[in-house]
Design a protein around this nucleic acid. Structure first.
Lengths: 153, 153
DNA sequence: CCCCTAACGTTCGCCGCACCAACGTAACGC
DNA sequence: GCGTTACGTTGGTGCGGCGAACGTTAGGGG
């Protein structure tokens, strides 16, 4: 092979902010997935339950808009949640195109569990950073994010 | 729907570091994908070309280890690169299990193009941050990343 | 020397997340 | 009434990342 190096990281990649971000996101995603899988859930489930709990019952369309989940994916995730009786889907009497989605008590309990898991995940993810540094990081990310959501999608 | 709000972001999500990171990564990924697509490439292509250019010819296995790409995906990406004559795959005379992968001059030219695109992407991605803040962000991410790669995978 | 093990390349298939296209139904504006 | 728009659903696409299996080839141990 030319360079007797087993698995060194190319400097060109390691220096790229986009690489750092996506790699960190990959790590974060794994931790989140594993944490949620431990309570039989995945990302979409938490996002939907949290959205419902925070804003109350809603149609699938507005649910999708608020949680940032594509409408077609809302359908599938809601099916999974309804199967577990964490959520209830009823036709809206006021508008027969809509379904009104509501969290059940069991859903709320599950949400608490998910939140607990996620809190632990955050701590594991940011373990090497001090509280001040964690705030720094989230602050910087939030600024980048709002910049890109305010003006392009 | 209970709350007359069109598409508000649930606070529970917005406050979650893992959410901020994955969302930012999503944005970054889109910018990268679009930038690379503009020169008929995708992420794997850049990663492979950069790895080859930095460490020289290598087998597909070590290539995968260095670039962090699964071996089976290396095969596919290498096919695409070879199709465009950006890379050459030759059997290793010293070990007939191996292929020796080499960048062609055209591949090197393409790599320059990709780097240019990616540099522009970094700038667009971090637009709202000052140079000092960009360093802060990359520094924090690097620390998180090395922490999680040094001791768990 | 032969056999077992390990590494290599390749194919096929899966997951998660995000997205698009199409379609039937239903509401709403004119 | 009729066109437009919104809604829910199905099915399919793409990308990044993984795992399983298989044939081939190298190498080490008995």
């Amino acid at each position: 092979m030319d360079t007797p190096d087993p698995d060194a990281v190319p400097a060109r990649l390691a220096a790229l902010p986009s690489w750092l971000i996506t790699q960190t996101a990959l790590r974060a995603g794994r931790l989140v997935s594993d944490g949620l899988a431990a309570v039989d859930a995945r990302g979409y489930h938490f996002r939907l339950l949290a959205t419902l709990d925070e804003f109350g019952p809603a149609s699938q369309a507005t649910l999708g808009r608020r949680s940032g989940i594509h409408v077609s994916d809302v359908v599938a995730a809601l099916n999974e949640l309804a199967e577990r009786d964490l959520v209830e889907r009823a036709p809206d009497p006021a508008d027969r195109r809509r379904n009104v989605v509501t969290v059940t008590p069991a859903g709320r309990r599950q949400l608490r569990r998910l939140e607990k898991q996620l809190a632990a995940v955050q701590d594991e993810l940011l373990a090497p950073l001090s509280p001040a540094e964690r705030d720094q990081l989230t602050g910087l990310l939030a600024r980048v994010l709002t910049h890109h959501t305010r003006r392009s999608g």
